[in-house]
């Protein structure tokens, strides 16, 4: 191997390490914010222009019509399920008023900020999207992000000046305290590298059925209670295990997000606070 190549490799590695060190102390945040602000309209335009091509590649038969139809049906389904969920909560309100006050919280006072998704994290290990709203618009780290229909998308992992990165619930590092709406069984919904959701720590004896709705439980204070996450698609019970393995399908189609709502009125509790 050439000395020149080895030297250049060492130079690139040292430069990368220096950049990493600088970014750890936030030195490059203004530069990254500026780059994000400049690139976001270009990325939005590129994304919009190439979406039909992507749809074509992803659905090689009867391309756009099926995709649009599917997206519309999915949104409609999400709306109906959200409405059903709301009605179920209202019903429970009649029966268990005291409990429900704590569960529903003060929804009317919630404030939302609409944002467009313009990019996604390019590596295959993480599931993050970039939105065109940032600190200047009131977006802060850890704020919740929902679909327009009201189901949980994720939370803000990094807010820059005019843009922000949102960690989706399907990201392997995502963990959301959750409960099954029908049986009130609690657990934790985690993402995985293959983009699926699993509800963990669900007791082996708990009553879990396919189609049950999963919402946030509010435990831990990181998420408000009652936000819709998804539906149970499979519950596996193994004889020797303490917990069931519950697979959850997100209500939102997180692969094709175009716009989202940032819940600006709920600030998660600091994990270190009492």
């Amino acid at each position: 191997m050439h000395v020149r190549t080895r030297t250049w490799f060492a130079f690139v590695v040292v430069a990368a390490l220096l950049l990493l060190l600088g970014s750890r102390f936030g030195v490059f945040e203004p530069l990254e914010s500026a780059a994000g602000a400049v690139a976001s309209p270009v990325e939005s335009a590129l994304g919009a222009a190439t979406r039909p091509v992507a749809d074509f590649v992803n659905n090689l038969t009867d391309v756009n019509r099926l995709t649009d139809e599917n997206r519309d049906l999915q949104e409609e389904n999400e709306r109906v399920i959200a409405e059903l969920s709301r009605l179920q909560d209202v019903d429970r309100e009649l029966q268990q008023l005291e409990e429900l006050v704590a569960v529903r919280g003060n929804r009317e006072a919630d404030q939302f900020l609409r944002a467009n998704v313009f990019a996604r994290e390019p590596n295959n290990q993480q599931d993050l999207v970039a939105i065109d709203r940032g600190k200047a618009d009131g977006v802060r780290d850890d704020m919740l992000v929902l679909t327009r229909q009201g189901s949980l998308v994720g939370s803000v992992s990094r807010a820059l000046e005019h843009t922000a990165w949102v960690r989706l619930i399907t990201d392997p590092a995502s963990a959301v305290s959750a409960l099954i709406q029908e049986s009130r069984v609690q657990g934790v919904v985690v993402g995985a590298a293959d983009g699926t959701l699993t509800m963990e720590f669900v007791e082996e004896t708990a009553d879990v059925k396919e189609g049950d709705l999963v919402t946030t439980s509010g435990v831990g204070g990181r998420h408000p209670p009652g936000e819709l996450i998804g539906q149970v698609v499979e519950a596996e019970r193994a004889a020797q295990e303490l917990f069931q393995r519950v697979r959850v399908q997100p209500l939102a189609d997180l692969a094709t997000l175009e716009s989202v709502l940032v819940l600006t009125s709920f600030l998660p509790l600091d994990p270190g606070s009492p």
Partner: peptide, 20 residues
């Protein structure tokens, strides 16, 4: 690195072995 969600420098570090 400027555009993704990772710390600036990580993408450069991950691509550095390509020089070899």
């Amino acid at each position: 690195g400027l555009l993704d969600s990772q710390p600036l420098g990580l993408a450069m570090l991950a691509l550095a072995p390509l020089t070899l």
